[in-house]
Amino acid sequence: MDKFARNLDWNLLYTFMVIVQEEGIVTAAERLLVTQPAVSLALKRLEETVGIRLIDRGSGKLAMTPAGEALYPEACRLYAAISRLPVTFNKAPQSVSGKISISTLSQVISSDFDTTLSNFFKNHPKVELSISVKTVVEIVRELELGQITLGLCSGIIPDILTKRWLLKEEFGLFCGKPHSLFGKSNLTLDDLREEPFVGFIADILGGKHMSDVTALRAKASIGQFVRGRSCNVSELRRMIEIGLGIGFLPLHLAAPYVQSGSLWRLPPYDEVPNDDIYLIYNPAINFSPAERIFLAQLFETNL
């Protein structure tokens, strides 16, 4: 085991991690800014080092072997620990300072979360805050790699991450004023099947993070032709408003636009799809004092 640890090249492990995340040699090479043969060679060298195949190359799409599935979360933990080593160099500042980095889905609204943010930064004025809008896949990846403090997202959350339920968003299907269905009542799901669709980037039929919205699309055969995508609710609403297609929006965010007459509610009206939003962090990384205090307040636990 000691010999294995000394011979293991971290760069090979990092390359393997990127291959899994990008789901391919070509896309991994683009992200790493190296050639495709270099990535293939790195994977081959890693497999020779560990003595077992990690990725099955036999099918059209790369798939991890059981050994690869066991190695991947460990590689993420190692990366998170290494990338955040500088945090450990300054464990006892005179006053709490530093940076809180949050990645969230677009326009997640929670008064409880906002209150916690307000109270924390009132008590710790030297701490900086960064909030970015990302997709579910991007948020989960950043958490696994220890690149952010906290994520607010839905979807399938890996077991290596800690989550707490925050809220439930209910969704409705809408069209804009220029659309041929605007103002029409007594519509059914059958009336919507041939309509162009606009949706969230993560809303992919058969995708990894299929939600209730995606499940309803699949069941009702809605949105077979996707005309536009965005991870930003405002941009998605814009595409619906100008008539590019029908699409799902959170009911509470769409309500003012329905009232103003720029959006029209379409079926289903009952049993609407919903999405659970979670607060998520990676317990395996080294937190700064500011991050530790912030997460402890959010999750009401000792970190």
Rank of each mutant, 00 (worst) to 15 (best):
I82G: 00
P37D: 03
D191H: 06
Y278V: 00
S97H: 12
V18A: 07
R57G: 03
I52K: 14
A5M: 05
A29W: 04
P66L: 11
L263Q: 07
V198A: 04
S230R: 01
V213G: 04
G68S: 10
F287D: 09
A81F: 10
L105N: 00
R45M: 02
H252V: 03
R31H: 14
L181K: 04
A80H: 06
S230E: 04
I204K: 11
P283S: 04
K44D: 12
R53A: 15
A254F: 01
E30L: 12
L12F: 07
E194N: 14
A215T: 12
P158I: 01
G98C: 08
P268V: 10
L33M: 11
L62H: 01
L303Y: 13
S185H: 06
R77H: 08
A215Q: 06
I293Y: 08
Q224T: 08
R292K: 02
T115C: 08
Q21Y: 03
T35E: 09
F225A: 09
A81T: 11
F294L: 01
Q259E: 15
E142A: 12
T115Q: 05
R164Q: 15
I160T: 13
R45Q: 15
G68H: 09
Q36V: 15
L295M: 10
R237D: 01
I246Q: 03
F113A: 02
A28R: 00
L249R: 04
D191F: 10
I201C: 11
G199E: 13
L46G: 12
S288G: 07
